[in-house]
Simulated assay, not measured.
Amino acid sequence: MMKVLCKYNDPDNVPPSVPNSFNFGLELEKEYLVMGIVLAKKQLWYLVDEKSRPSFFPYQLFEVTDASISTRWHFKLYSEDDGIFPFDKEAMWGYYELCFNENHNEQIVDREPGALELYFKRKTEIENNLV
């Protein structure tokens, strides 16, 4: 299970390479389970949740503490013609629906109940080594 430790959150104390520097609402020195990774505009973003709110965060905020990934993770390469949210997405790694349900990413960001329920179901499966 890929895990990361939050090292930065304060907009005045983040690496200069972090896009959109603002308070990300993460807890410093807290370890997070990575549920997915997106490559967009040549930038990696980790899908983690804080206070039951999953979001994508720039990788520079974290230190990898466990680099292993689930054997059930999938990979999806996107093209500009896909028209899938976010429109600048180049590649995705993560649980099946994250990679192959074209609306799931947007639904997570929009906090739609069904998408959140599925996200936390997959998270529980990964935490319990059921996948």
Rank of each mutant, 00 (worst) to 15 (best):
N129D: 09
A40V: 05
P86A: 06
G36M: 04
P58K: 03
F56P: 04
I69C: 11
A67P: 08
W93R: 03
L5C: 07
H74G: 07
K30I: 02
E112N: 10
K51N: 12
S21V: 02
P15K: 06
L130F: 07
K7S: 11
R53N: 09
R72H: 12
N23E: 06
R53S: 09
I126C: 11
S79M: 06
F100S: 10
P15R: 04
E29T: 03
M35G: 12
C6P: 08
P58V: 00
K41Y: 14
E63S: 11
F56S: 08
K76L: 00
I37A: 01
F56G: 13
W73P: 08
Q60S: 15
N129S: 07
L5A: 10
K41A: 15
L130V: 02
K3C: 08
S17P: 04
L98R: 04
V14H: 03
V34I: 04
A67R: 14
N101H: 11
E63W: 02
D88T: 04
M2S: 03
Q43C: 14
K123I: 01
H104C: 02
A40H: 07
Y59S: 12
E90H: 07
S70A: 13
M92D: 08
D10S: 13
H104E: 04
F57M: 10
M92E: 03
D49S: 14
M92G: 08
V131C: 10
A115V: 01
L118F: 11
E31I: 08
M92N: 09
E125M: 15
L77N: 11
R122Y: 05
P16S: 12
N13F: 10
F120T: 00
Q107C: 07
F24T: 04
M35I: 03
P11I: 01
K41D: 14
N23L: 09
E112G: 04
V131P: 00
Y78R: 07
R111L: 12
C99E: 03
F56M: 12
